[in-house]
Design a protein around this nucleic acid. Structure first.
Lengths: 141, 141
DNA sequence: CACTAGTATCAGAAATATTCTAAATCTTAT
DNA sequence: ATAAGATTTAGAATATTTCTGATACTAGTG
């Protein structure tokens, strides 16, 4: 665990008005250190090896709290689990309906809306669905 | 239940190479007749009053089959349930992180990609997240 | 019109992901 | 030191979805 990431996590928590407990810092740090889109359970398992260990409920509670406060984002594009994302910038995902993987793709549209029909837009996610390179190849076979 | 919707459902099934059984026609018709984005359970309950009733497993199997064959789309944007959508045209959704409702919004980007990094794009869904009109108002209060 | 093979459906059990609960622990202010 | 409040915990409970194995339907064949 990177010390400066933990420091950053603590700052982010304070800025969001959340008291920076040991567990919360651990959860947010784990999310900041990866560019995959981990599930709550993945984070729980990653932190499970730590002493002291963190309870599953705390991982879920913390992630939900962070989403509520707009510190992180959640994705339910694919599979059965909710996946979390600490990247603030708008970015796109490609979801393969066959193998269920998520691929990051460069943001196409330059337009970033800030308001729509009176709704306050905090983030936008362009999700493409279809068949990925590999599954597409297999279909032709 | 509209007879012509059932006829349309039957045609759609045949076109996708799926044999148009009574249960499958019922499930797809139910989806075609609504512009909400119902969950499997919502469809199950709607059809539950029919004679003969349809099993929950069949509703799930049918919806999954239709998604696999690209006949309908599934959304996991919000809440805990998978929601289904029979509309083929690309369209956008706004998801409120507070009240968890989904609002339909007009498609912003005119660009529709058909291929990205070698992946075959069959549909795209632009999901905006933030605070809806109402929840935004409550926050200010 | 049987018979068979393959497909579809069923009810309920099981698996999976998430939330709830009530007790224990930690923090903070007095 | 103490009380009040917030946080964490383990495990139970709930919710959603998939699996299972039995049954029923369908189409093709003799």
């Amino acid at each position: 665990m990177n010390k400066s990431t933990q420091c950053e996590a603590s700052e982010m928590l304070k800025r969001a008005g959340i008291s920076p407990s040991y567990q919360r810092i651990m959860v947010l740090s784990a999310l900041l250190e990866t560019d995959e889109h981990p599930s709550a359970d993945t984070i729980y398992k990653k932190l499970g090896t730590n002493i002291p260990a963190i309870s599953r409920a705390t991982v879920y509670n913390t992630l939900n709290l962070l989403v509520d406060r707009g510190v992180i984002h959640s994705m339910r594009t694919a599979g059965s689990e909710t996946r979390f994302d600490s990247v603030c910038e708008a970015h796109s995902h490609f979801f393969c309906r066959k193998c269920k993987r998520i691929f990051d793709v460069a943001q196409q549209s330059g337009e970033i809306e800030t308001e729509l029909d009176g709704h306050l837009v905090e983030s936008q996610d362009l999700v493409y669905k279809g068949l990925c390179r590999e599954c597409r190849g297999e279909m032709i076979k």
